[in-house]
Every structure is written in structure tokens, then in C-alpha cells.
Design a protein around this nucleic acid. Structure first.
Lengths: 145, 145
DNA sequence: TTATAAATGTAGCAATAGCTACAAGTTGAT
DNA sequence: ATCAACTTGTAGCTATTGCTACATTTATAA
């Protein structure tokens, strides 16, 4: 098989081309999801708490919040806590749903809760609609029995 | 519920802290895997082919190859094609095995080949040993029937 | 009220990963 | 041998995401 270049790793191209934007989008999802959790459970989302949770400095959080604000997912004022916009809440909800499906799916394979949570963090951003749907179907089948 | 910060998203911390190194590692895996494919199928791995396949310019490839060389995964000389070191071959093989398991697993859920390949590209880098093991077990069960 | 601690902001550095534009080397055909 | 096409290298720009160090604001306690 002489192997035309065009036959090698074709499916990979598109995925990697988008690397940068994708990564920014992943970050956005992680942030809004976490902000939503903080607001729901603690009443407010503060930069320091996000930083502690994400394992980065408050500086990194501050800059990311600026970007999210620029992109319309959050609102923020100096020295005040962070709020989600309607778009931010929507994104947070989608992300959360996706996250929960992935976790439940991994749990259904016998993965421990902690590992499922940890793996889901990485995986959830790379699951297509089709695959997520397959996860749901698999879960339904399991539940039915 | 006053919601201690410490109870929110704890599993996420470690995963995100490593973001940068992780991403570099993912890139390394993608590159060595692709280089191995080119060498196996076309006899040599040239920067231009990698660039075309990855959807980036040759400049980006050139710099990444420098890094991989620095990290001991490849050898390269000016205007020559790229070779894997022993470490590079090892990494490529591991990555390929992991990739194939993820693809087979997704296929077993009824995902189309193309989508399985595409999703696997993103997912394979975020699957823990435990989860990969669960995938294998699931595949064995399916096969057995 | 005032001093101190905690939180947030700002300045500026590094590495990675993109890009365009241009320079230089390699290869193949005539 | 030379010219043209292709490939690779270099320079220099942007953006993201880390960091430390230091400044400022807010909140709390004495």
C-alpha cells in the first residue's frame, strides 16, 4: 500500500485545525459552569474562589473573566463578584447537562465516582452530539433492565 | 445552605491545573502518532505533509518539531525529513493503541466510523487508565456475545 | 476610627500555538 | 548546468494562559 498522503489521518484535520478556538471555548464552559455552581451553592461567585478551585492564580482568573465579559457570558465590575448573562447561563446549563451525561455514562461502565468526575472534565468537551446521544441511549438501556 | 467553597467541583482542580502541560503532551502524542503513520505508510515524514494533515502552516509544524526534538521524541536536521527516537516510537505506539481502543469502543456504541475517529481524537487524551480498562472490558463483553 | 487582612487590579515576564511575508535550500526537468 | 517549483527556515506579529511582584480597594476587627 503506497499510502497517499491524503488517506492518512483525514479525520484528524478538522479537529486539530480548530484547536485554539476549541480550547478557548472549553475554558469558557468550565468557567461558566463553575460560576453557576458557586452562585447556586454559595450565593455569589468570587474570583478568588474560582482561582482556588481551578488551581490558578487570581490573575489568570481575572483575565479570563475579562475575556468572558468581552464575549458576553458574564458581567463583572471592579472588586465585585461575577454574574452570568443570559448567554452565560445557557452555556452553563448545556455544559452541566453534558457533564452529567458523561459522568453517568462512565459510572454505568463501573468507573468510580471520583474518576468519572475527573475523566468527564476532560472528555465532555470532545463528545459530539451523536456520541452524547449514544451515551444517553446506552444509559436508557441499562436503566430499563 | 452556606456552601463551603471547598465542596464545589473538587475533582476539577487537579485536571485543570495541568492544562498547559497536558496540552503540550497531547500535541506531542498527535504529532508522533502522525509521524509514525507517515513513516509506515509513505516511508518518510515531511513537515509539509504534517502541516497539510494538521491543517496548520509549515511554520507551526517546524516549531513543534523543534520542541519534540528538545523533548527527545524526534530527530530532525535542516531540510531533511523527521524521524522518531525510541521514546517517540514508544509514545506513538501507546497513543495508537489508546486511539484504537477508543474508536472501537465508540463503534461498539453504534457511532459511525467517521464520527468515532473524530471524537476519539479529542477524547483519547482525557481517558484515564481505569476508564480505558473499562472500555476494553466493555468491548470484550460485546465480543463474547 | 483606624489598622490589618483579604480580595482584586495592574505591570510585565515566559511558553505555546497560530499567522504572514520573505529568505534560502533541494529537487527535478530541460 | 540552470531554472522553476517545492520545501524548509527565519523574522516578527497576535492571542491565550500561566506566573511573580507590587498597588489598590474592600471588609473586618480592635
Amino acid at each position: 500500500m503506497p499510502a497517499k498522503a491524503s488517506t492518512i489521518g483525514a479525520a484528524r484535520t478538522a479537529a486539530v485545525r480548530r484547536t485554539r478556538d476549541e480550547h478557548a471555548q472549553e475554558t469558557a464552559q468550565d468557567y461558566v459552569e463553575l460560576i453557576a455552581e458557586f452562585i447556586a451553592e454559595a450565593g455569589e461567585a468570587r474570583a478568588t474562589d474560582l482561582a482556588r478551585r481551578l488551581g490558578v492564580t487570581h490573575v489568570t482568573v481575572g483575565r479570563t473573566i475579562q475575556r468572558l465579559q468581552r464575549e458576553g457570558f458574564v458581567t463583572a465590575q471592579p472588586y465585585r463578584s461575577i454574574f452570568l448573562t443570559a448567554a452565560g447561563r445557557r452555556l452553563a446549563q448545556e455544559s452541566r447537562r453534558r457533564h452529567e451525561i458523561v459522568v453517568a455514562f462512565l459510572r454505568s461502565l463501573g468507573i468510580s465516582e471520583a474518576m468519572a468526575q475527573s475523566d468527564a472534565e476532560g472528555i465532555e468537551h470532545h463528545v459530539s452530539r451523536e456520541t452524547l446521544q449514544a451515551f444517553v441511549k446506552h444509559l436508557r438501556k441499562k436503566t430499563r433492565n
